[in-house]
């Protein structure tokens, strides 16, 4: 009995298609976003995250229509991230049917935006996305830094301190992506996941690096994540959501089966 850990398939969407790259390069096509979202909904996914990775702002309208199409057919929580920079962007996504928005780069450049967004729309719909990279050398105390622009630009911000600050500013949830692991299939960075999960009182979603089902278990058990996000293991038919849930439940993790 109790609250279940969540499995969240993630749709990285570029030019109207679900794509998946390895460490943000080498993109592969994985289908139409609405079809993919419906498939995960039918499989029993606990939420869906839609990340608009389109660089140009011209395509934002396409994203709004896609979110509308998904939200009218999928009755589980939907988070939309990518290019959320103003309260108007948030309003537009919520009106299109998103339940939460992910704020990433804009939070780094203007932390007050997170505070304003949480006050206006409620913390429950403000997810702060953190892209972290390990910067400590072998033998040093672990240290992770925040990167922006798809992992290319360092900010000098300590990831754990940043997460605490974002929660103090009103973030209702943290989506933590390890830039070292994203797309590698080597598993989550459990160190940074656990450090942040233990440092904040809001739920933490682990992301970046899932290549096999045991990684999901490790994210929850060792990383102390409240939810696990994965893309390619589901997109390309290696595993289904029910398989992942059964695998996790078999290791005594509370799941919604």
């Amino acid at each position: 009995m109790g609250l279940a850990k969540r499995i969240i398939p993630c749709l990285d969407v570029d030019n109207g298609r679900v794509v998946k790259g390895v460490q943000f390069v080498d993109i592969r096509d994985a289908g139409d976003p609405v079809e993919v979202a419906k498939r995960y909904d039918e499989q029993g996914a606990d939420e869906i995250t839609f990340l608009d990775i389109t660089a140009s702002s011209d395509d934002r309208e396409t994203t709004v229509h896609m979110v509308e199409a998904i939200a009218s057919q999928v009755f589980i929580p939907l988070t939309v991230g990518g290019g959320i920079r103003t309260c108007d962007d948030i309003r537009r996504m919520l009106n299109a049917g998103a339940d939460k928005v992910g704020i990433n780069t804009a939070a780094v450049f203007n932390p007050e935006f997170v505070r304003e967004a949480a006050q206006r729309f409620g913390s429950q719909c403000i997810v702060v996305a953190i892209d972290a990279k390990k910067v400590s050398a072998e033998g040093e105390a672990d240290k992770w830094e925040i990167f922006t622009h798809g992992g290319r630009k360092p900010t000098g911000l300590d990831a754990v301190e940043w997460a605490k600050k974002m929660v103090a500013y009103g973030a209702g949830e943290i989506l933590l992506t390890s830039m070292d692991r994203d797309g590698t299939k080597n598993g989550f960075d459990l160190g940074v996941t656990r450090a942040i999960s233990e440092a904040v009182h809001v739920p933490v979603i682990a992301s970046g690096g899932v290549g096999e089902l045991q990684h999901l278990v490790d994210g929850v058990k060792e990383g102390k994540a409240d939810a696990v996000l994965a893309a390619s293991i589901f997109h390309f038919g290696e595993h289904t959501v029910p398989e992942a849930k059964a695998f996790m439940a078999a290791q005594d993790i509370e799941m919604r089966l």
């Binding site: 109790g2 609250l3 850990k5 969540r6 009182h201 809001v202 739920p203 409240d226 939810a227 919604r256």
Partner: peptide, 17 residues
């Protein structure tokens, strides 16, 4: 906290029975 003293996240977010 739960009965075993483990800290529980707030908000209560996700699927519960």
């Amino acid at each position: 906290k739960d009965a075993q003293g483990n800290r529980l996240k707030v908000p209560h977010m996700g699927w519960n029975q």
